[in-house]
């Protein structure tokens, strides 16, 4: 339990460790994309942690990184094929950012730092925690960007072929507010993440002062 909590707050991959920012910034224009990307990364992360932890005793140190990259690349290719055949819309929305999970520093970083040193059970828990932390961070960013940037919140759109119905809600009454489309643009992504990170820092530091 503590490992999972650690991944969400103390070692949050996006706000604290600053890993895997490429997909974070690119995907978070819609709430739906954010949690789907989060789920994809979490699954790959858990499975790669599991495999790496299982074979950690047979891999010599000198070839660690290439072997891990190959494992991750294989997993991502499987994920790509699965999405391509079962959820084509999602596959198209993600575009190149799906294969880019391979070079997402979170997964390789966790494989090198945690999974290659600890037991199987612990590394799976670590994968869950970090994955969850990543997903939550993506959801927060996407929520802010989508609600303010286009005045909608998309719960199900491109996965509607699987779930059967679409769910796109308007938050504020239409035609009364002009959405800040700046937030949807790349510049808005950097700004949102920067501000959120500053808020996160302030909260963590505030908490420390109280505890002393």
């Amino acid at each position: 339990m503590k490992t999972i909590q650690n991944g969400i707050i103390k070692e949050n991959p996006v706000f604290v460790l600053l890993l895997g920012l490429c997909s974070t910034l690119a995907i978070t224009t819609k709430f739906e994309n954010a949690y789907l990307m989060g789920i994809c990364v979490t699954i790959v992360l858990i499975v790669s942690n599991l495999i790496v932890s299982c074979i950690r005793k047979w891999i010599p140190d000198s070839v660690k990184t290439p072997v891990y990259i190959l494992i991750i690349a294989t997993l991502v290719t499987i994920m790509e094929l699965l999405l391509q055949s079962y959820a084509r819309d999602v596959y198209q929305v993600f575009g190149i950012y799906l294969p880019l999970i391979v070079v997402n520093c979170i997964i390789l970083g966790r494989a090198l730092a945690v999974a290659s040193k600890t037991s199987v059970c612990k590394s799976i828990l670590d994968g869950m925690g970090i994955g969850l932390g990543y997903t939550i961070a993506l959801m927060i960013i996407a929520c802010i960007r989508e609600v303010l940037g286009s005045n909608t919140i998309t719960l199900m759109d491109s996965i509607s072929t699987i779930t059967g119905y679409r769910a796109i809600y308007h938050i504020f009454p239409e035609n009364e507010l002009i959405p800040i489309s700046f937030l949807i643009s790349p510049a808005g992504a950097f700004l949102t993440l920067g501000l959120l990170m500053a808020i996160f820092n302030a909260i963590r530091k505030g908490g420390k002062h109280e505890s002393h």
């Binding site: 510049a187 808005g188 992504a189 950097f190 700004l191 993440l193 920067g194 501000l195 990170m197 500053a198 820092n201």
Partner: peptide, 8 residues
Amino acid sequence: PIALITAS
């Protein structure tokens, strides 16, 4: 954070 805002 300030680096990200600069990037923005």
